[in-house]
Design a protein around this nucleic acid. Sequence first.
DNA 1: AAAACTCTTGACAGCGCTTTCAAAACCTGC
DNA 2: GCAGGTTTTGAAAGCGCTGTCAAGAGTTTT
Lengths: 338, 338
Amino acid sequence: MPEIKTLSDVATVAQVSPSTVSRILNGTAVVAKDKRERVLKAIEELNYRPNVIAQGLARGQSMTIGVVTQAISSPFYGEALAGVEEGLEGSGYHALFASGHWRVTEEREALALLTSRRVDAIILTGSSIPDHELQELAQTVPTVVVGRTIPGLEDFCISVDNVQAASIGLQYLISLGHRQIAYISGTGTIQGDAVERLEAYRQTLKKAGLKYDPNLVVEGDYQERSGLFGIETLFARGAIFTAVACANDQSAYGARLALYRRGIRVPDDVSLIGFDDLQSSMYTTPPLTTVRQPIVEMGRLASKLALSILRGTPIKPSHIQAQLIIRESTAILRGTRA
Amino acid sequence: MPEIKTLSDVATVAQVSPSTVSRILNGTAVVAKDKRERVLKAIEELNYRPNVIAQGLARGQSMTIGVVTQAISSPFYGEALAGVEEGLEGSGYHALFASGHWRVTEEREALALLTSRRVDAIILTGSSIPDHELQELAQTVPTVVVGRTIPGLEDFCISVDNVQAASIGLQYLISLGHRQIAYISGTGTIQGDAVERLEAYRQTLKKAGLKYDPNLVVEGDYQERSGLFGIETLFARGAIFTAVACANDQSAYGARLALYRRGIRVPDDVSLIGFDDLQSSMYTTPPLTTVRQPIVEMGRLASKLALSILRGTPIKPSHIQAQLIIRESTAILRGTRA
DNA sequence: AAAACTCTTGACAGCGCTTTCAAAACCTGC
DNA sequence: GCAGGTTTTGAAAGCGCTGTCAAGAGTTTT
């Protein structure tokens, strides 16, 4: 294997001191034209690339942003990460990902890993680490958290108002004439997206003068299969509904399949609505009506925020708006069925 | 912000030399019990975590594996990356991702980024960098490439036999009685998955005594929308077909939607088959029949291979087998239609 | 032509850690 | 109680780079 060249190799070849090479590399100071040329030539010749690790050590910054995610292959987090990457583009910073797989201990490990690599800032997505730990973390390293708001760290949190967002969807269903609306929830019972969205379901029903029927809600876990099981459970209970709202798009996919299996048409017999607006929701059959969370943008914004903090001039994260995306999985209530 | 502690801070507190602390940390040598305890206590007290970057510099290895991917948010690459991560688990190594977005120049940049961070090995997925560049790269740093076989680097390549794999799907369609089979291809015309799979289409047709009708194949780009357009194009051409094979699952999703839009039932009127078996293909309506590429396993295997190379005892990558997954988007040919 | 500056350049310390090397400490056994 | 051997320990160099500092070169001024 061809040796990897170092800055002093370049210096030797160009017959200048390492400092000079460094100066040229970083534009830290003016250097005489002839030396500059010799150095550039040497760099070219040796195919030299600075060792970012060494630079990091010397400069005291790693030029990397740690990103803790739950699962890199989940469409939701995948989009968020893509956003983060995009936001970092051209900044010289790079993202280091670590997955928590929805387990707090693993998430802590992920965090430990990132800090032991001395990342310059940390972005957390879908974190379930307790507030106070994150508050502590934020003392040590610039931290931004997406999808959740931590007291005291409001300016470093990026999230949509779940209650408001989820309401939009419900309201739409109601406006379509639906009165028996089933709900497949997310997981988590104390705090977080799942309880907020469920809360929105209850509130919206109430506001519309409909009564909350626990028989119509089933607990899911944001995964496709839980949507499928959700519908099965509903039927097993003998529940009657003309629409079903899901805590996220993925569970809506599963619900869709369960409905299909039973020969129930969407939206003719039952309306279906999701939450998130994943890229693929545009291509389900029928295309899914959903409440859009601008996931990619949120990721991008998270990066921008982190960078701005590092720069010393934190931007104020503008509020993120959810938006109803009407597609073809919802329809005006016709007959009764299911 | 609380200062971050260093190894010599620990040494000072524990009243030993930095060397001793290092030895304890790495188990490099035996240390007296009392000192060991003092050090451990100091570490605890200061909440010290070794600086992996500095370790990397000193040891000459970064403990990170660079992974170039095309798009982190694509379901296909997402699964592969998850596999890579999994394979690295517990090894002490961590993955650094860089995306090429299907553009060779960007991919080169990604590679440059990874090498300038002195990653200990590189895993490429979906790479479209010319063979010779990769051969060169492999001279400098342990390289494993997934989804493609590079001459001379066979032992470091992990891929399925595209021709064989794609044939399985086609054969199945034919065995179902289909004779007019449309094909929505992938992108890339000189080499790579797309041409191999297309080749499989032609060969299989030929072997079955069917003639290749260029009118039935349309070029796609592996994305959902190209599947949709593909079907539209086919109809615009007045093509007659009873089944459509897609170069990957994502384009099959798009095709599915186009068919739905036209009121064509799957599989009753037209059979549909994909390639990859993405996680979500199990939940489409109807669930998609497809040729399974064990993507996650391939990622995992890539990691294992990379680690084994670093360890100095390269394993021989076992051959990856594709497998037909029969679900509900395909059916025996009944009437004629479309 | 010497004094007073201004630029350019190299030496060197240091980032936080590892790792040799040799000195210090501890054991043996006689 | 001391020579010889074995451990344990610390000093110091070094990983590849940056950044300060002061010396050297080059200009301008008087």
